[in-house]
Design a protein around this nucleic acid. Sequence first.
DNA 1: GCCGTTTTCGGCCCGACTGTTTTCAGTCG
Length: 571
Amino acid sequence: MENADVARVLSEVADLLDLTGGSVFRSRAYRQAAQVVDLLPVPVSELWRKGELTAQPGIGDRMAEHIAELLKTGVLPEHRRLSARVPPGVLEMLRIEGMGPKSVALAWKDLHVATIAELEAACRDGRFEALPRMGPKRVAAILAAIERLRARGGRTPLYRALPAAEALLARLRAVRGVERAEIAGSLRRHRETIGDIDLLAAAADPAPVMKALTGAPDVAQILGSGPTKSSVKLEGGLQVDLRVLPVESFGAALLYFTGSQAHNIALRTRGVRLGLKLNEYGVFDKHGKRLGGATEEEMYAAIGLPWIPPELREARGELEAAEKGTLPALIEEADVLGDLHVHSKRSSDGRSSLEELAAEAARLGRRYLAITDHSRSRPLGVTAEQLPAQIRAVQAADAAAHGRPHLLTGLEVDILPDGTLDLPNEALAKLDVVVASVHSHFSQPAGEMTERMIRAIRSGVVDVLGHPSGRQLGARDAYEFDLEKVLDAAREAGVALEVNAMPERLDLTDTGCRLAKSHGVRVAISSDAHLASQLGNLRYGVWTARRGWLEKGDVLNALPLQKLERALARA
DNA sequence: GCCGTTTTCGGCCCGACTGTTTTCAGTCG
């Protein structure tokens, strides 16, 4: 059973408890545990084997027993008991916006409505409206929400939401009287996917700011609008929430709306222990006296903590680290001095010339750039016979670039199903940088895939393991393998693991980065650009690394050229 | 069900908005 499966069962128990009138605190405990398991960087089964489950925050003795039972038998008795009482369609109704546990339970108990389709029918024939506290507006809202549920796919990748958010932000900042405006929410935390766009503005008069949002050109629907808060739906289906606050509360609000929710709860719980109340307007003592809130720093300082970067705010140990003064000095985009995985049109599937790539890299301030076209197994890939010419071409382009940037010779070589590389080691040994990647036979059993990757790592010629898990957001799951075994082999062989910064890859993931660090393995944050304009994608990889707690010293291509060349030198 | 420089029992984050009400329950983030 994978972490996601365990998390799903626990989270379903929480929903089932809500629907059957169980304790809200019990359901919260299950939901919290589900979240913890879902975010674990290692298999939950391994923590169980080592007896370390209860070391996780929010997992106590009882929950650990439940998880153990689930891992051993694949079934959780509590889940089975509750789900026997609740038809699956009832559970599904919770996914409709505006339908919480109370409303779903009411429809189910009073109207015997047990599926979304039946709920829709009950809305249309007036039965739902006749229930207590229901009315025509709620019915219309629910029908619209059912439509949206059917239309939408789920979460939106960061790179799709970011441009829309930046455009709206610019619009808000242009409004007279807006003193500050920022993106908040999971977008500011740079999660790889986001649920909706959260925007925040400081202004004495909120009305014109709200109008700027609701009147934006790509707004399809206004979901709600009050004096301090509005929600709209964009043409593409993305939801945008905007809050407007007085400037003296901006820091408190930015903290609050950046989340994560789990981080906020942890902060406020800490506040309660210190006799303080934290909300989106500031921090207050027990007499209601306001102690601060203009900046995030003031909020953290009030509860005795230094400012915590948004990427760390996931309740994954950042409060404890902040308290001990051991927060990482996170890697920044400017720390990344070069790019170690780039394709040119000289061969393979790149579409920019060496000169175009070098010019764009120079513009971005990169000091070095490895040209790593595909090897012979990919269409148009470089063969052993073509390799000398490829090297000469890169060296010629390097001479022409006069060190701005320095071009490194390289290849992205295929790892064949048996773990050998698709060009001879002697040929690859002539290159500055060898990235080795799995591009085929994704469905090998986990054991074989792990051995395959480890064999490539131990070849003696590989510098970086490219896009280690093979996952593509919303398109392809990671192939099955044992990341910890791969990391152990990589540490022994001095091989780095890639953080592929293509925004639909982001592979390693954030938790993978954190695991790499704990295993003493460096990462290479690389663009995998196939077009000069994609060299700028590196920022997505940097954000992923930051979410994985990585510092400059954890990143291979944060090294200056001379040190990098020493690190790449093979015996 | 979790958790503890108030506690191993008795708490458990906090406020805005909506639609239904004439004071508030439910939902959301």
